[in-house]
Design a binder for these strands. Structure first.
Lengths: 349, 349
DNA sequence: CTGTTAGCGCGTTCAG
DNA sequence: CTGAACGCGCTAACAG
């Protein structure tokens, strides 16, 4: 509750001198410095950062706006960001959009009011409008994980197209020729990029493209479940499925189990996003592991670079590679399937 | 970049009137209100929250200090907190202590400087000192998950003692008589409380207490691994192990796998903390599931109650029950083990 | 090396 | 119903 004035009074100096001592500014005599330090200790003085921020026009706070902190992929990103920010004296504020553009806009507005120095954003949609405000306020933004139609912002993400390509090539290598893909909303870049990689992989093996095998829904457990249910009704049934994130994969797995489909006996399943090694003993899913921590770390580094150089410099896009980790959920297709549909295989009990 | 003054000028009114309009205060003529709103829109005016906070002495920001946001237990708590805070107009800042008391102290200090309105804290140690500062600044604190020797702060946590008791009773019910417990640091309440529950369960079944079967290390993968390694050297070997958190459990599992010990064939393993259902298809571990989201939610609610009533009212302690979820990692003990040691069982290849 | 002066942007008296 | 004046706590200019 004591202010800089109380300290000044007790130490018998001006507030300016106290300020200098506190901020380690050169040019204060040793004697006075000592007296100030004593007074600070005596009064249990704590500088008021809010007042400081008002003067300095910087809050030393960055904001992270993402879909859902509960998703380990984002959690790991969050950790990477914090590990960069705190040592530099920056606090980190988080907000969950749950993929709602309205939420996203509201949060961004609040964050502008709060004068955050920068924003790390996993964009929810593809619209340009949300960034207008940030731009007009000169608040640097780094897009994380996804990109948007606006091509002026810094981006840090994993190579979705190449990742999907690699996963599908993996399936093709195992002998699959009929592969489905289940993904999130159409207006999210990770959906479209991954579908693009999927299509390129099929083309590279001269496999036909069946639009019916491409399903868009949402990056959620429920979405994965719904899509798989409907995929199972397709004839001839695909022998493998590519899920484009971990939520979708687990929803898919649930649908498969309920339908009595054996993975990988009857159907292979591969997906984006690995769980941190701490969370699975004996992992099952073949995945494309994204370097989540590194994504967060580098996005934060990039943001701080902007903050320190006054946001100058041309746009930067950092794309990190993922890695296919083959595991038990993918195997050769059941040999019942041939080029010509013979009929539906009986579903095992 | 426009201030309230710019708006006032453009609207031809005083800053006071603008302030009133912005804050929805009664008593402004319809005409002027309209003019102000127009000016606000015209100038893209965004109120500066920092200046507001300086005046109002409230930042509408709460801080969460926890061990590691990467642990799904804490992630879920974090989500519960955010879901309460944001709708009330509060921003949430997170900091990871990694169980370091130094880190904890540093963070708390920063947070005080930043004038956060309240703190939700998963305490790292048992010392009273860290809270002195918060107390002297009249910043309300709610302890989360753990308690400390200071018995004046609000607490929200799961019933560790009862949880451990229930898990051990579960093992005893399966026929186990020699049960080990592997836990974290001795000065963290969740360690001691859970060991207490373990001891009570043994006593309730009139089983002997063997101090050698109680191991303290750290709530980490490495800790679990180390403890299990050393547990395996004990003779006669226990037939079941209680891990007191998820990190420890996975470390333990790893050690068991490396040693070629089958779970639950050779040894049963039960633990605190379940993974969110999204993260495991076909879960394996018998767990005591803690209501993590609810812990976060209620802790936040309690904190806001304090904030709104000016932190008055006597201390409150909320203890939520956990639930045993029996799964495949626990089963009857191998019948080779008897009261008298016959010799070590051969380790399966 | 040191202190005085003047705001940062806002909300809150208190007159009118 | 309206506005002038003041100050939240701090630091950047500017003198001395």
């Amino acid at each position: 509750m004591n202010t800089i004035r109380d300290v000044a009074r007790l130490a018998g100096v001006s507030t300016t001198t106290v300020s200098r001592v506190i901020n380690g500014v050169e040019g204060v005599s040793e004697a006075r410095r000592r007296r100030v330090e004593l007074a600070v200790a005596d009064l249990d003085y704590v500088p008021n950062a809010v007042a400081r921020h008002l003067r300095s026009k910087r809050t030393r706070t960055i904001a992270v706006v993402l879909s859902d902190i509960t998703n380990p992929f984002f959690t790991t990103i969050a950790r990477g960001i914090q590990d960069v920010a705190w040592p530099r004296g920056y606090a980190v504020t988080f907000a969950n959009t749950d993929e709602s553009e309205t939420q996203e806009r509201d949060y961004l507005r609040t964050l502008v009011q709060r004068q955050v120095d920068g924003v790390l954003l996993v964009p929810t949609g593809n619209a340009a409008e949300p960034y207008r405000l940030l731009r007009s306020q000169r608040i640097p933004v780094v897009l994380l994980d996804r990109h948007v139609s606006v091509r002026q912002l810094d981006e840090v993400r994993c190579d979705s197209e190449a990742g999907a390509y690699a996963l599908v090539r993996h399936l093709i290598g195992l002998g699959h020729r009929r592969i489905a893909v289940v993904t999130g909303r159409r207006d999210i870049s990770t959906s479209t990029d991954r579908v693009a990689g999927y299509e390129r992989a099929l083309a590279s093996a001269e496999l036909p493209l069946d639009r019916d095998l491409i399903r868009y829904d949402s990056f959620s457990l429920a979405g994965g479940y719904r899509m798989l249910k409907s995929i199972l009704a397709i004839e001839p049934r695909p022998t493998a499925v590519l899920a484009t994130n971990n939520f979708i994969a687990f929803g898919a797995l649930r649908a498969l189990r309920e339908a009595g489909i054996d993975v990988p006996g009857d159907m292979s399943l591969v997906t984006f996003d690995d769980l941190p090694e701490e969370w699975h003993d004996d992992p099952f899913l073949t995945v494309l592991a994204q370097p989540a921590y590194e994504l967060g770390r580098q996005a934060a580094e990039l943001l701080f670079e902007r903050l320190e150089t006054g946001a100058r410099g041309k746009r930067r896009v950092i794309v990190l590679p993922g890695a296919v980790i083959p595991r038990r959920s993918s195997a050769a297709p059941p040999n019942v399937v041939s080029d010509v549909t013979v009929g539906r295989r009986p579903v095992p009990a």
